[in-house]
Amino acid sequence: MELSGATASQLLEAMSSGATTAVEVTQTHLDAISSRDESVGAFLSVDAEGALAKAAEVDQKRAAGEPLGPLAGLPVAVKDNICTQGTSTTCASRMLENFVPPYNAHIVERLNAVDAVIIGKTNLDEFAMGSSTENSALKVTRNPWDLERTPGGSSGGSAAAVSASLVPFSIGSDTGGSIRQPASFCGVVGMKPTYGRVSRYGLVAFASSLDQIGPFANDVTGAALLLEALAGHDSRDSTSIDCPVPAYSQSVDQPLEGLRVGVVQEYLGEGTDDDVR
């Protein structure tokens, strides 16, 4: 099986069956970043050492028969406006170019708790204010499908990283479309969870009453698996909702019959490309 480009569930299966290891999965994705990210520009920083150490820890736990988290050994990329203790969090701004957070965001703690492997931090429009990832002070991210085009934004780095098969899934933040729009531009799955579903603790705020952290993935099940890990109550965000987290990944095959989907027709009016419409 080709590891780079595989879905989260395929990778989990391959690791649990012994067909591959977390270290091999992580190394393959690090190699993909080395060979392809120069042209895409999805990442602002890559923590190869930290990622391989975490992957080795997962492999050791598995070998010892110790319990593993549900995302054990899966490489994940995190938007660079989410605090990671000990590694830079720039918000793609020169102002925070040298900022190294002294604490982890809630969702970073969650990713560590479920044994995911944080592989690096992704580019964004400065402080998430933009829709093309060209307004980053540090670099421009390009759309992997056509390097002359924008990946959308502001979570363009996270969307492009999944689209270019540099990671099976990634984390973005959405205030007014910053996950949904780049997901659409890059042809990957992305969703903005209900406000309050995911703790904003450690997310550098853009508009606090609208910001929400959410997943990108190369398939719906991957996004569901990631959201299961991110979601849940956190008392450090007073707008975080205290209600149970459903097993989203168990219901992705549920038929859509009977559901009504609202479409705002005005959004698809004049000026929208036929291919998009």
Partner: peptide
């Protein structure tokens, strides 16, 4: 005002 019923959060 919100998709989920929420009230004041105190600690």
């Amino acid at each position: 005002a919100h998709a989920v019923d929420v009230s004041n959060v105190l600690r």
